[in-house]
């Protein structure tokens, strides 16, 4: 494969995304973990651009890097905000090792499935008027799911308010 600029961009973004994930696992302070994940989210937005989904990239930055991360930070601050990950309990170590094995096995199996995958399909012009394409499809083919989604968001909104009413926080309103 050629050492194209696109490939370079992919490597860079992928590295940032993975290192954000690894930092999430290894950092001790909760706030740091969330901030590390913000990098991951942003680089995933970059990946979306590479995959000709500009609209989604913007949405990703708005919702994940913006809204969700901020909610998480609020959540941390409203609870024990300088909490640190303590040493795991006695049974925890054994469980972690067990889980790690499982996750690795899972990854290996799937990697074996995808590492040589190539559908060889012809590219479609998804990047031209991306938002328009999405809009047309959403309001023609997927109107009902779209309307259902609005109901879901309303329910979540009301539910979040009811659940956290006493604090009079409005973290559910962001969406």
């Amino acid at each position: 494969m050629t050492f194209s600029g696109e490939f370079l961009a992919f490597i860079l973004l992928a590295l940032v995304a993975i290192s954000g994930g690894v930092l999430l696992l290894n950092l001790t302070k909760v706030v740091h973990m969330v901030v590390a994940l913000v990098f991951t989210f942003i680089s995933i937005a970059g990946i979306y651009i590479l995959l000709s989904a500009e609209f989604l990239a913007v949405v990703q930055v708005l919702i994940y890097s913006g809204a969700i991360s901020i909610i998480m930070l609020f959540g941390i601050m409203l609870t024990k905000h300088n909490d640190e990950e303590e040493a795991t309990a006695k049974g925890g170590k054994w469980r972690k090792a067990f889980l790690l094995l499982g996750v690795l096995a899972f990854g290996a199996v799937f990697y074996a499935g995808i590492y040589n995958l190539d559908f060889g399909s012809t590219p479609v012009a998804l990047h031209e008027n991306n938002a328009e394409q999405i809009g047309i499809s959403l309001f023609s083919d997927y109107v009902i799911p779209f309307e259902l989604m609005s109901v879901l968001l309303l329910v979540a909104f009301v539910g979040a308010i009811v659940l956290s009413k006493k604090d009079e926080e409005k973290e559910g309103e962001k969406e």
């Binding site: 049974g91 469980r95 067990f98 889980l99 094995l101 499982g102 996750v103 096995a105 899972f106 199996v109 074996a112 499935g113």
Partner: peptide
């Protein structure tokens, strides 16, 4: 909850391995 899901997930992984 984490123990439960660990067990469930590892079970899934074992099934996948066998499948593969």
């Amino acid at each position: 909850v984490q123990t439960y899901s660990t067990v469930a997930f590892v079970g899934l992984a074992v099934l996948l391995i066998i499948f593969a």
